[in-house]
Design a protein around this nucleic acid. Structure first.
Length: 209
DNA sequence: GGTCGGATCATCT
DNA sequence: GATGATCCGACCG
């Protein structure tokens, strides 16, 4: 890909908003990784919002309080929250909202725009598509060493991108969770390659206890 | 083409 | 000791 125009990292105030607002606003932004001295990039096409004490599916729910793992979620906005999922994969989040709220956006899907060879190599020759949180981190070279880093002082860069009109944004329940699965906090760009659309899952109301 | 289960481990109960 | 914000290969139809 050609030389990009000015790369303006999103300012901290971009992330200092409610988590669902940031999750929606991140669609269309560009994510650039220079991890390991190799550059690859893509457009963010799928996100999920987690957090706030009232979200039972969040690592920062009141059930656990602040722990060694979720500490970063309660830190200032614009920092990275990385954790290991199922003992196998890394998941990449960006902290949002005012410090102390415990909110973060999970980055689930990227539409590769550059460095596809780098991503393919990191993924062992599998499709370069970075759809799904585990694939995304593997393709970008993200691991736990980025935990808690301010995103603008890390080898990851989130920069201004395209504005995705509302008509192209699909909102569904979040993937892979059992509680609050019907909360409309997953956002993706309609028709993005690799973004599975299990929006087929009906938002069934929870039976009364 | 869809579904099932193993991998693998930090975290919390 | 059980549980996941998952992925992928194997197997079935």
């Amino acid at each position: 890909m050609g030389r990009l125009p000015d790369l303006r990292p999103l300012p901290v105030r971009f992330f200092d908003r409610p988590v669902d607002v940031v999750a929606r606003a991140l669609l269309g932004s560009r994510l650039i990784s220079t991890i390991g001295g190799e550059t690859c990039a893509g457009v963010i096409v799928e996100t999920e919002a987690y957090g706030g004490p009232e979200d039972p599916a969040s690592h920062a729910s009141t059930r656990a309080g602040i722990t060694a793992r979720n500490r970063a979620m309660f830190g200032p906005p614009g920092r990275l929250y990385v954790y290991r999922s199922y003992g196998v994969h890394w998941c990449l989040n960006v902290v949002t909202g005012p410090e102390g709220r415990g909110e973060a956006v999970l980055l689930r899907g990227l539409d590769p725009t550059g460095g596809a060879d780098v991503m393919t190599g990191r993924r062992g020759g599998f499709t370069p598509l970075a759809a799904g949180p585990g694939r995304l981190t593997q393709a970008l070279g993200v691991d736990g060493s980025l935990y808690g880093h301010p995103v603008d002082q890390s080898p990851l860069l989130i920069v201004d991108g395209w504005t995705v009109p509302d008509r192209d944004v699909v909102v569904t329940g979040r993937i892979g969770i059992s509680t609050a699965a019907d909360w409309p906090l997953r956002f993706y760009v309609a028709g993005s390659p690799g973004v599975s659309a299990p929006s087929a899952r009906p938002s069934l109301p929870e039976p009364p206890a």
